[in-house]
């Protein structure tokens, strides 16, 4: 982890000196339960960052607070040096978000939805139109561009949401479970697209349950469980010679060593 950052006013330094995302003491409580417990995390600019953790670990809550969707009880989140909660507009301009478990305006056609996302960001019509076309091509959705999103399959819905997050060419992409129910071919296409994006200087944060995918795709990883960051750094340093999955299980625990369910054996 890097040192705590000095607060520099917007525009007085090149944004690349800052981490793409920097969380400090971010906390969220729901009643008596602490969902996110004062986490600190730095996502270096230009990294492909994986966020892994068991169900209910606080991944989605952390990402929601980091992206301005959920107000934290305490702590700060900065995107390329811009405080998300103090300067939400500037911060949101830098970010593209794919939240998990939220609806889309699904009575719009796929084309209309992505156009809507672009126009809401204040982009002009011509740029939006040409980018919408490119995005739909790249995500294999061109044939269904005029279909209402409500009639899309789960995987297509994920892809159209991803297109909505990409339309304004953000510096940082925050994707919560982007590969869920996406077919292998589209999934590979999305991975290529994201790898290109990182190669061109962008930063991607993905949360996922699939360790193999994170190990292959990401260069950095953080393990979150019970609202705490258990490990963070480059994938190599975190997995420490083991596979990421083995390391994850070691960190998080919860594996049963016993013989399992005796009565389930068929012979």
């Amino acid at each position: 982890m890097t040192e705590s950052l000095p607060h520099v006013p917007l525009g007085s330094a090149p944004a690349t000196n800052f981490p793409a995302l920097s969380l400090r003491g971010l906390t969220k409580r729901f009643g008596a339960k602490t969902a996110v417990n004062a986490i600190n995390l730095d996502v270096p600019a230009g990294s492909f960052y994986g966020l892994v953790g068991p169900n209910g670990a606080g991944k989605t809550t952390s990402l929601s607070m980091a992206t301005g969707l959920m107000r934290p009880d305490a702590g700060t989140a900065q995107v390329l040096g811009v405080d998300v909660w103090r300067h939400p507009l500037e911060a949101k301009r830098l970010m593209g978000i794919l939240p998990d478990g939220v609806r889309l305006f699904d009575r719009l056609s796929g084309e209309q939805l992505v156009t809507y996302a672009g126009l809401l960001r204040g982009m002009d019509k011509e740029t939006v139109a040409s980018r919408v076309k490119d995005l739909l091509e790249a995500l294999d959705l061109a044939k269904d561009a005029g279909t209402l999103v409500v009639d899309y399959s789960a995987g297509m819905t994920k892809k159209i949401a991803l297109a909505s997050a990409l339309i304004h060419a953000p510096k940082l992409l925050v994707l919560d479970e982007p590969f869920e129910s996406v077919d292998p071919v589209s999934s590979a296409n999305i991975r290529d697209l994201l790898t290109d994006y990182v190669a061109s200087g962008g930063t991607v944060i993905v949360s996922s349950h699939v360790m193999d995918l994170v190990q292959r795709m990401c260069d950095h990883v953080a393990v979150i469980a019970g609202g705490n960051v258990l490990a963070a750094g480059t994938v190599e340093s975190v997995r420490d010679g083991m596979s990421l999955e083995e390391k994850f299980v070691e960190l998080v625990g919860g594996r049963h060593q016993a013989g399992g369910l005796q009565w389930l054996r068929t012979s």
């Binding site: 056609s109 796929g110 084309e111 209309q112 156009t115 809507y116 126009l119 809401l120 960001r121 204040g122 982009m123 002009d124 019509k125 939006v128 919408v132 076309k133 739909l136 061109a142 044939k143 269904d144 561009a145 005029g146 279909t147």
Partner: peptide
């Protein structure tokens, strides 16, 4: 039915601003 794009409906009629969108 599968429908290809090109029909933006009201999005084509309103000004390309956040308010219009």
């Amino acid at each position: 039915l599968k429908r290809t794009g090109g029909k933006l409906g009201f999005f084509a009629r309103f000004p390309g601003t956040p308010t219009g969108a």
